[in-house]
Nucleic acid binder design. Sequence first.
DNA 1: CCGCGCCTTCCATTCAACCGGCAGGGAAAG
DNA 2: CTTTCCCTGCCGGTTGAATGGAAGGCGCGG
Lengths: 235, 235
Amino acid sequence: MAPHILIVEDEADLALMLRYNLEAEGFRVSAAASGDEAIETIQMGVPDLILLDWMLPGLSGIELCRRWRAREETARVPIIMVTARGEEEERVRGLATGADDYVVKPFSVPELVARIQALLRRVNPQLVANVLKAGDIEIDRTSHRVRRGGRDLHLGPTEYRLLEYLMRHPGRVYSREQLLDGVWGNEVYVDERTVDVHVGRLRKAINRRASETDPIRTVRGAGYAFDERFAAAVG
Amino acid sequence: MAPHILIVEDEADLALMLRYNLEAEGFRVSAAASGDEAIETIQMGVPDLILLDWMLPGLSGIELCRRWRAREETARVPIIMVTARGEEEERVRGLATGADDYVVKPFSVPELVARIQALLRRVNPQLVANVLKAGDIEIDRTSHRVRRGGRDLHLGPTEYRLLEYLMRHPGRVYSREQLLDGVWGNEVYVDERTVDVHVGRLRKAINRRASETDPIRTVRGAGYAFDERFAAAVG
DNA sequence: CCGCGCCTTCCATTCAACCGGCAGGGAAAG
DNA sequence: CTTTCCCTGCCGGTTGAATGGAAGGCGCGG
């Protein structure tokens, strides 16, 4: 399951922008426009991380932070505070109160994402693991190694990236165009059929043994997906 | 079927940029360069959302907005107005006239997309939902899977799109012509009877078991609809 | 009862995905 | 510097599924 992020932000524009970008990064996102709303939202389910605006109407960010830290359920949820430039002193008080990190508006989205990943990794490495796993297939992203049933598989660079890309969102169907954008890069000019060829090669490399099921699903007229039921089927 | 957006914009460059970006986001896009053209376009099919430039040659955005709001068919279509900086007073009048949201040029595409998603969700959550559900029938759009009572159904691409299209607006009756436009695409030229055949195939694929009720309602002389009472009847 | 409109079945055609092979390019090895 | 190997992208052909059309039968509504 994708990590769940709660955004506490009263500026609707900013909140919307954040939601959109974080969802594009694969996070699940909830949003609250005030402290009271945030508390209410958290009662419905504790998120994996909280993005907290410091300047809130009503309950302040500091107060929220303190309350969450005091409760058993939420004490370990990482909090990133969002401050406007010039609230530097707030930052000190914030870190003292228990926030784990901070960003200053305006911030870049990639930077924010990087901080989020880092915090999530610190608290729960599983959430942003460097090892993708599904059934008996395992990708180690740091060493660029792929194994199936213990055996090492030999993949070309493109096949590797393709597999990684597909495994990032098991079940999700990608069109050839999306795959070209995501795996090859948006500036390259390559024929869409080439995707077929590489999927074919990837399959040949992965399903070397007769007993092994093909984890890649072809969706006629739509594209390809890594079968989300593969893990359960092979398990 | 993907939500349909109408762009009313006289600056050709901007219109093209919008079309390109929105299509990349998976929307279907029509464009009109003037108010008259927009009215004409809408007669061919009501979009799910309208992006309306405020400064138009001929009929003004305000006037268009007013007319659409007055007509039954278009009264509920969300409208986002596009204003240039410095037309702030226009914005007030626009919201008063019935626009649902506005963006100020220059705007970021992700921001615009986020607003579009939000509006579509407000009007009809089905439009941007990941899973369409009615009774025991379920379509997962990201994984392109269709299930009934837990079992997977095998649909061809056309039947899939047809079912999705019908389920978007349960109860609404579509003529064969509308279905050809919406499911096949407006540029294709196919016999109307062919729709019958595909509805037949869809039915066969969906109602495989004897106990299963047919959710597709034939309206003699008018077309087809996904029965809005189906969900309640099946439970 | 009549006639129009819908449903079904069948068939030819088209189309999308897969396969094997090939040539260019680049990196690594000699 | 040359040779070799591997990766890559593309092409043509094959196969099986999906599609579009036609025809006949049936049922509904008048």
